[in-house]
Design a protein around this nucleic acid. Structure first.
Lengths: 347, 347
DNA sequence: CTGAAAGCGCTTACAG
DNA sequence: CTGAAAGCGCTTACAG
């Protein structure tokens, strides 16, 4: 099983008795070739076990058909779904995107970006790692490479972004909580180095203000954006002299953690304390109790991002309009009324 | 922001006042270059905004440093963790693996494999899609490309595989159930087109036989390897005249579904019906009740696979030993004793 | 230590 | 419709 020297188009040409230009044309599906010739060439391709060398081709063509996807956390199903959405449209366009994971590490992200560029990608879709510096994408912009951000934006960047309407999602969720009669509300998890955090917190604040929740009754608990963070937030909140009765969580993971902490104290999520999540991951529906959450359609956003990228490449531009995806609140069982006030809808 | 023509080593050479060979040597970190020269060249590289063209380099070098990872289901955290483990070791080896997702689709897998080969990968780590035909990897073998299978094996293939000890894991789990006093056991989920299924089912069977469970008390329910599949299996089982009292599930997703179905019928998982999962995904620990499951250390297997790959590339071989990873049963709260027999350990 | 030359495997005008 | 020739951006002996 020694690896034989790789077959090239020259070997094919010899085998088929044509010139290498002809082979190249067949490879590209050119209509200029007589059908019989094409058949003959294709047979030769099989016979010699030929593997197309895309690197060599790109060298000459100066444009490639590989697209890179840079994901900040592959183990989070939320981002994995984004990737799946993107793949769906690239697949139908006949291109295979390469995914690389940065594990939320800006240094790793630099390496990944560099490697992808060296590989000659035609464009990049990236969900930037937390703590990415504004200059991290300067080099790509200078090279004129099409880039779109998905899910997250960078503070001062003109790179187009595809993201859900975080502000509105948080507003809707908060409104729901207030409608259930809650008057002392918390926001759980996340931290201010994330643009998304400000957007979601902003929606929370606006709803509170609009709907008459006093500033002193809006409690903000920063924390990790994980189950662990949710547990910590809930424990801190419950230890207060006057704890909140409901919480909007930065994301579903935080909400799962918060519900866990409730259970540990013998409290029933939904009945004793209302919690809303954000993202509506698949698990939300199957949790016990089923989690009320803001659905963002990450696969749909992924598809959108891929379409924008395809269009940018086609029109040779690095500019595109931002797209803010619609969100909607999926009401399930994790938000009863505030039993203490006795207000709100029937449980 | 028009994309300027890309800078090449020739531009660098001109800028730095050296020949392009010198630039190439600097790029490769050769010790042959005088330090002052190297500094001068590196400055020129920055100034002209150079991006290394790996395709051109590979063309000449005839060996690349990119490795492909082909994953069958990125949205399954189990496989995502495998990917993360692999990445960890590649990162410290200074290489960026490209991940591609086949979404459990053999046709897509063909495309992905083809694309990766064309891109000139040095090796491939793959978790084959369900329904992969034996011939699917023939071409890669012929090309002498190092390939290792992770988590799954193909029926008749000499490609090395890195996988957990499924047989033993299932044996341990079944033994645990029997130790708890259960005498009528089910195996939930999975289907016979998966080699893993036979391995796990084999362990279940062996434990039953060894520990004296009559053949008529071993119930096999094939089904999807998802929550949905678990729900279906449990509903079918519960509808029997003489239902089982415990189930070993093909994987954790099936176990979550089974527990959900229990709850729907007003039954308490653990107390009223014992369930064990397989894989021990992160969620298992946080479920309510916490799920007893067979831990397979997927990240560790990923690391192992990456190491094997690195060694294969280095020693220019396509052969390597299989590695069967140790498993262990993590006992949590989802398996009470069989209350009907009153046997077994205290609950 | 550095330079001139050949060549990796393709595509692309250009002839025919 | 097909062939001969040039060239994409690198690396690699080979001289010096």
């Amino acid at each position: 099983m020694a690896s034989r020297p790789k077959a090239t188009i020259l070997d094919i040409a010899r085998e088929a008795g044509v010139s290498k230009s002809t082979v190249s044309l067949v490879l590209q599906g050119s209509g200029l070739i007589r059908p019989e010739t094409a058949v003959k060439v294709r047979k030769a391709i099989e016979d010699v076990g030929y593997v197309y060398n895309r690197g060599a081709a790109n060298l000459r063509k100066a444009h490639s058909n590989v697209i890179g996807m840079v994901i900040n956390d592959l183990t989070n199903p939320f981002f994995a779904e984004l990737a799946v959405g993107m793949e769906r449209v690239f697949q139908s366009a006949g291109i295979v995107p390469f995914i690389a994971n940065t594990a939320e590490n800006p240094v790793r992200q630099e390496e990944v970006l560099k490697s992808l560029m060296e590989q000659g990608v035609a464009g990049l879709i990236v969900s930037p790692a937390r703590g990415t510096t504004p200059g991290a994408f300067r080099r790509l912009e200078m090279a004129g490479l099409p880039v779109v951000f998905a899910m997250r934006r960078l503070p001062e960047s003109r790179i187009p972004v595809i993201a859900p309407d975080n502000h509105r999602g948080a507003f809707l969720a908060t409104q729901h909580l207030i409608g259930k009669g809650h008057r002392r509300l918390a926001f759980f998890g996340g931290s201010s180095d994330l643009v998304v955090y400000h957007e979601r917190l902003g929606g929370f604040r606006e709803a509170c203000e609009t709907l008459g929740i006093a500033a002193g009754d809006r409690l903000i608990f920063e924390g990790e954006t994980s189950r662990k963070g949710g547990i910590a937030c809930m424990e801190t909140a419950l230890a207060m002299a006057a704890p909140p009765t409901a919480a909007l969580c930065f994301n579903d993971a935080v909400a799962f953690g918060a519900m866990l902490a409730l259970r540990k104290r013998g409290l029933e999520p939904g009945a004793d304390f209302a919690v809303v999540g954000f993202d509506d991951v698949a698990e939300a529906e199957h949790y016990m109790p089923a989690l009320t959450s803001v659905a963002v359609d990450s696969a749909g956003l992924g598809e959108r991002a891929a379409h924008v990228m395809l269009k940018m490449i086609q029109s040779r531009t690095t500019r595109a309009e931002d797209h803010i995806g619609a969100v909607n609140l999926v009401v399930r069982d994790s938000c009863g009324p505030d039993l203490r006030t006795g207000m709100g809808d029937a449980a």
